[in-house]
Design a protein around this nucleic acid. Structure first.
Lengths: 116, 116
DNA sequence: TTATCATTTCCATATTATTGGAAATATGAA
DNA sequence: TTCATATTTCCAATAATATGGAAATGATAA
């Protein structure tokens, strides 16, 4: 729960959500901080602050490569968050049509998480 | 994007995330504000503030029933948000093992959203 | 109407997040 | 070593959000 709030807070900002989605798109190879800054037109100090927030929330991972710092999405934790938001839909009873799709997504997310 | 940030901000708070998850569990029938207050031990003024935030973010819907106000989760929008967080994983290329589960969850969420 | 219960609004206070220039640090190249 | 590039830290001003008691509003029943 605490972790979910931290992760949601990290994503609840236009710049950071942009960074996160860029990293999701980039995949496990990730992107250098400078490349992210160029893509989103953020000043270095500002981006660094946001990257630190995403890392603190365990939604991003960094590694050093030469003189670059490469950031990538933490897919496992992102998926846990997504699952947390849809789990236990309708108290486990069979869902009414209004929410059945949420239950499907939750089930798929659980399966995905287990294979990580 | 703006909507996603609003929704994430709404969820990025311990009390509101608790309310949202309670409503997801409750299903489409929803719960009266007072029942939510009892379940989460929140003072009426505080809960009202948070319910307004969730409604403003379109994650909760309210309806009047007698002298009760019943809140329920907005499953459609919650699912859109979940999908937004996982879409375009690895730029559409076939995913490496590290992120493949995220792509599966995203695909399932998209299918679910279309049936709403 | 009058009483009762449910919920929201008002409000002042307290807390926390965001910004980006300039300087510091780190890595590798010449 | 000296230079160039990449990233982070420092900092202080600004802005947004959370809290809950008390009063107001809304709805129904007696």
């Amino acid at each position: 729960m605490k972790g979910a709030v931290t992760a949601l807070s990290a994503l609840a900002h236009e710049s950071r959500l942009g960074v996160y989605r860029l990293l999701v798109t980039a995949g496990p190879e990730g992107m250098a901080a400078g490349a992210i800054a160029d893509a989103l037109r953020l000043p270095p100090a500002t981006l660094s602050f946001h990257l630190k927030e995403l890392s603190r929330a365990r939604l991003a991972i960094s590694r050093q490569e030469g003189r670059y710092v490469i950031y990538s999405a933490n897919f496992g934790n992102a998926l846990k968050l997504v699952n947390y938001l849809t789990e236990n839909c309708c108290g486990g009873r069979s869902c009414l049509p209004e929410c059945a799709p949420a239950a499907e997504a939750a089930a798929a997310a659980v399966i995905g998480a287990e294979t990580l």
